[in-house]
Design a protein around this nucleic acid. Sequence first.
DNA 1: CCAAAAGTGTTTGCTTTACACCCATGT
DNA 2: ACATGGGTGTAAAGCAAACACTTTTGG
Lengths: 225, 225
Amino acid sequence: MPAFHTYKNPALATDLVVFGYQDKALSVLLLNRKEAPFKNGWTLPGAFVGLEETLAEACRRILDTKLGLRSIYLEQLYTFDTPNRDPRGRVISVAHFALVSQGKLTAVAGKMANDVRWFPVTDIPVLGFDHRQILSAAQERLRAKILYQPVGFELLDENFTMPELQDLYECILGHSIDRRNFRRKILDAGFVELTGEKKEGLQNRPADYYNFNKKLLPQHFHLNL
Amino acid sequence: MPAFHTYKNPALATDLVVFGYQDKALSVLLLNRKEAPFKNGWTLPGAFVGLEETLAEACRRILDTKLGLRSIYLEQLYTFDTPNRDPRGRVISVAHFALVSQGKLTAVAGKMANDVRWFPVTDIPVLGFDHRQILSAAQERLRAKILYQPVGFELLDENFTMPELQDLYECILGHSIDRRNFRRKILDAGFVELTGEKKEGLQNRPADYYNFNKKLLPQHFHLNL
DNA sequence: CCAAAAGTGTTTGCTTTACACCCATGT
DNA sequence: ACATGGGTGTAAAGCAAACACTTTTGG
């Protein structure tokens, strides 16, 4: 039986679109490359896939070692194979996207290597490889996904207020939503519940804290926003 | 600059879920393997990806040479990487699905190799590798996709009647739909138009022929069926 | 007491659902 | 004429959009 990994196959890599939410803006982690190609240019974090690891494991390895992020939401996005996407040779990349909650985000903020930076999605520099295209695909996926799966909570703290959740939705969807209708639709979907606590210390009426009800929920719904 | 394709990478393949619609049933093309592993068992058609071809090109190559099918709808589905999905070694497969129109389907019916057969999706044999899982993912994608992109037409003839289109939708979605509401929603979506011809020769009132209006349409809609 | 932002409910209009009748053909 | 399946319209219900007032805090 032949050893298939000795065949002349394209090389296999993963690239990661890591989303975070901070200062009321959706952001992405970008890496400043120290080597050619695209030396000193910005790209998505990525790596080649080893023989002994799954795609998810390769992604976790990048997240852990390069970015200091553990146990965060991860999902396969799409496989990119444009012939000259990598000037070094034929590399096919299985892109993934990840979501970092505000808690994890601030926890590792200090430890981050200085060649890694958050960029708001509204202000992305020129990216190397085909990473602009990958990023756009990830944004599109996130936009679609947030309407039928409880994925927004991966970007917030465990406790969040309704206005915070709405801000996040508006950031991702790119348009504003009526407060009252938003609240009703989210509550009708039934995957958040009041914690009983309130967010105090603001200059106005305290907001109720909610959290994501992980147990008794339908894993799939449909929001019309 | 190193030659990346000499790295120890997992091998890269594609597997194809080819859908057809015949005898009022959604069907899939399966291949009877002549070699181990899964000798004499049924699997999806597939192949390793060469260094000089894109994923889509690899798929077209399979479709053309193994199945005699040209210029049909093709879309990337998902990349499967379970560690032991292939007993021969580490193979990662970028699954695709394809849609064969009734015209093409009958045109090549005779030329098909005798180790290739159509199976209605309601009656699929045990499949080798992880192909059962791939097939299920493809069905799910098709179900979702048919509701917001004009993809059903890829499975029918150029001209089709409203009842034919409805039968197809019911097959894919797995439930029945009210005739009058179906008709209205399809027409409201605005991507079909009357040809003026009628399907005659039945034992009852002739049905109007429609065709898919490829030009002046929004490529994206939403059907609530 | 004023400004700022959070919480709540109601009315209006549209979309979806459910459903019944007429029409064209072959036998 | 009758059986079969195709074409059309309408009334009722459910859902989404628009919108105004009250509440709680800090200054």
